[in-house]
Structure formats: C-alpha cells, structure tokens
C-alpha cells in the first residue's frame, strides 16, 4: 500500500480542566493511507467528531502528533494550516452548512474563492462539479430551495471543487432518508473509486460504514476495534478479530 496520507501518534484531546476535565481522546495511533476509505464508527459521545476535527486540522491536539503526508502539522503556523485545509481537504457536513442567501454555484465555489481563484475560473470549475453531480440545472437557485438530497449533493460538490486528496464527511447521511442516503453513498464511493480520493467518514450508519475498506470502532476516546474489507449488505459482521489487525499491519510494512 502507498504512504500514509494521514498519521497520528498518541493523539490526546482533553476538554476543560480540574473537575470539568474530560478526556475525549486517550492516545490514538493509526494511519490512513492514500486512496483509502475509512469509517470512524461508535456510539454518540465516543469521540468520533473530535478525532475527525483533529485529522482535518480544524483543532489542535492536547498531546500527540498529526502528520500530513509524513510532515507533522503542529509546527506549521495557522496560516499554512488554513491553506493546507483549503487545498487538500474537502468537507461534507451532516447539517449541510450552505449559505442560504447565496446561489448554489456561489456555495460550491466558496473554497475556490477563499483559495484566491478568479471569478471566471472558479465558476467554470464549479459548473464542472455540478455537472458531475447532475445538479447543474440548479446552479442559479438559492441553496434553500433544494431538497435534502440535493443539498447534500451541493455539499459534496463543494467538497470536491478544489480537487481534494481527502474528503472528511461527518454523518453525511444523518439527515437523509434511506433512498437518498444510498444515492449520496454511491456518489461518495464512486469518487473514491474513480478519482482515488481518500474518504474519512464519521457515521452511525452501518450500511455506509460497511462500504468502507476499513472501520475504526471507537469507545470512550479509544479505538477498540479495527475491521478491514468491504462488507456487502446482509453479511454485516461487527465482531473484532485482533489477529486480523496485526496481520494487516504486517502486510503494510512488507
């Protein structure tokens, strides 16, 4: 397998102090490889979002290291980190976070605007991804006029527009019905397959988790299990085999 795009070493996140101290992450070490699809699963409050925020460089760990493409990020200044996020990551949120007062196209091209692209180039690129996601006809609509599924498509388009190497999706299907969820999943995994984009998905949805190549099971701030291989619907298996974990790691190093 290729080099890890993201690595962590003894990642610790502590919220509050004194009596209010809460250890959200208790020392996580793992790797995410280029072109991989990884699901972070676990109960509510287990620390999934906290972990994703650290991986996505939105937050700084209390202790430990996050490295992007082999380089530890904590030494970089905030401006560089912003730039890295803008150029290498795409984000899909459960709550969409589309700007209600802007058109679909403006919403989709926001990362490019932030990245300093000129207007005509970013509109061109914006239309390209909207076409790819088959909602180009809604480009001029206001973002609020869309259905949930369409909104999530727009979010994916926005996540894709800067040709990211990693897409982070926090509960991307959490607000969608089953049929729409399936469509959105198909889009995400299609991108993963066709463009080799690394997917990091935080989800409750077993269906979605099962389609990922790897699942990290979290509980109380720790990764308690790791599962490999895509699970086709119906043969869902959440049992954990430690031997398999070690085996895979051996293979990676080989």
């Amino acid at each position: 397998m290729s080099t890890p795009v993201l690595e962590t070493e003894n990642l610790v996140k502590v919220y509050g102090r004194g009596a209010a101290r809460f250890d959200a992450l208790k020392g996580l070490t793992f790797e995410i490889h280029d072109g991989e699809s990884v699901a972070i699963v676990g109960k509510s409050g287990s620390g999934k979002s906290t972990l994703m925020h650290l991986l996505a460089l939105l937050d700084e760990p209390t202790a430990g290291v996050v490295a992007l493409e082999g380089r530890p990020v904590s030494q970089l200044d905030p401006k560089k980190v912003s730039r890295l996020r803008n150029e290498t990551f795409g984000f899909v949120f459960q709550q969409f976070f589309l700007n209600a007062n802007q058109s679909v196209l403006d919403n989709v091209t926001l990362p490019l605007k932030i990245g300093g692209w000129g207007r005509s180039q970013r509109n061109e690129r914006g239309m390209e991804v909207l076409e790819q996601l088959e909602i180009a006809d809604k480009a001029k609509n206001r973002a609020t006029d869309l259905s949930g599924g369409q909104k999530q498509r727009v979010c994916i388009a926005r996540a894709l527009v800067n040709r990211p190497s990693v897409i982070f999706a926090d509960e991307p299907t959490g607000n969608l019905d089953t049929a729409t969820s399936e469509v959105v999943e198909d889009i995400l995994f299609g991108l993963h397959r066709d463009q080799g984009i690394t997917l990091v998905v935080v989800t409750h949805d077993e269906d979605l988790a099962g389609r990922c190549e790897r699942r990290l099971h979290m509980q109380d701030g720790l990764i308690v299990a790791e599962e490999h291989g895509v699970i086709t619907p119906g043969q869902l298996d959440t049992t954990f085999d430690p031997a398999q974990l070690g085996l895979e790691d051996e293979e990676d190093r080989a």
Binding site: A56, L58, S82, N86, I114
Partner: peptide, 16 residues
C-alpha cells in the same frame, strides 16, 4: 457565526 465557522473550516485565515 455559522458562516464564519464554515469559511474558517474551508481554509480562510483569521486575518482574511
């Protein structure tokens, strides 16, 4: 607040 948070998440620096 939301919009600002989104812009920051998408890589807009505090200075901008």
């Amino acid at each position: 607040t939301r919009e600002i948070g989104l812009m920051k998440a998408l890589g807009m620096s505090g200075g901008r």
